[in-house]
Design a binder for these strands. Structure first.
Length: 270
DNA sequence: GAACCTTTGAAGCAA
DNA sequence: TTGCTTCAAAGGTTC
């Protein structure tokens, strides 16, 4: 429910027509100071992204040029002039994820100091579900409850990359068009469509992903992708590797034939 | 109930 | 620097 609402808002934003200068790039802003990037989670722009982003640097949150890597108290950045839906600056953000509407960037109680009761969608219990049922703590030993407490620490999810943002937006469309439900099949189609996109279209999603990473870094300065490593149990490591050896996907094929990440589907997979 | 499948990209890590 | 691994989403399938 909440998720759908947020997602709808995101879609609305994604398709929000620029009021003036339609199709133009976002308002130029001073480029980010690369030297000031934090030591962790430094946005590694893909060649494709760099190719398209540099001529048209996009707006950066106000404190993005702050000295990063220096510990700052976790707080809600003042992005009102940039991300606020009520600021009247929507026209400047034709392809910009809104701080207030993007699913994984929605502010909530996950952000200290924020009054909203809705938890940050990027923060989820390890189970991935809401913990609704209280349990009898008296039955737990101290060690058990400590371990349980540790295990129940909310997980901060990785920010979505360009393709993931594209998938989120286009999934429903593909489901409707192809009357498919299986995500594996849908993702295959989306993968092909992703490669069929023009570079300009893709650049839009790379830009969104870059903003998402920046906001994620501001929200969780100490967070690292490493934090979530090993949280998913694997049934059989050998089986997983074996499946990776299967050249049935573009990625696998590219890896096998040493093709560039940005190349299209290779012959054997077509 | 939880991992798997399937996609791309970002990030971490070992060599 | 390179190459491999893991995890982000999603929902049906498999274990």
């Amino acid at each position: 429910m909440y998720k759908d609402t947020v997602y709808s808002a995101f879609n609305l934003l994604m398709h929000y027509p620029p009021p003036s200068g339609a199709g133009q790039h976002p308002q130029p802003q001073p480029p980010l100071n690369k030297a000031s990037q934090p030591t962790h989670g430094v946005p590694q722009l893909s060649p494709l992204y760099e190719h398209f982003s540099s001529p048209h640097p996009t707006p950066a949150p106000a404190d993005m040029n702050q000295k990063q890597g220096v510990h700052r108290p976790l707080q809600t950045p003042d992005l009102s002039g940039f991300y606020s839906l009520t600021s009247g600056s929507m026209g400047q953000l034709p392809h910009t994820v809104s701080w207030f509407t993007h699913p994984s960037l929605m502010l909530g109680s996950g952000v200290p100091g924020h009054p909203a009761a809705i938890p940050h969608p990027a923060i989820v219990p390890p189970s991935g579900k809401q913990e609704l049922q209280p349990y009898d703590r008296s039955l737990k030993t101290q060690a058990e409850s400590k371990a349980e407490k540790e295990a129940k620490k909310p997980t901060i999810k990785k920010p979505l990359n360009a393709f993931m943002l594209y998938m989120k937006e286009m999934r429903a469309k593909v489901i409707a068009e192809c009357t498919l439900k299986e995500s594996a099949a849908i993702n295959q189609i989306l993968g092909r469509r992703w490669h069929a996109l023009s570079r300009e279209e893709q650049a839009k999603y790379y830009e969104l992903a870059r903003k998402e990473r920046q906001l994620h870094m501001q929200l969780y300065p100490g967070w690292s992708a490493r934090d979530n490593y090993g949280k998913k149990k694997r049934r059989s490591r050998e089986k997983h590797q074996e499946s990776n050896a299967d050249p049935g996907s573009p990625k696998k094929c590219r890896a096998r034939f040493g093709l560039n990440q940005q190349t299209d589907w290779c012959g054997p997979c077509r």
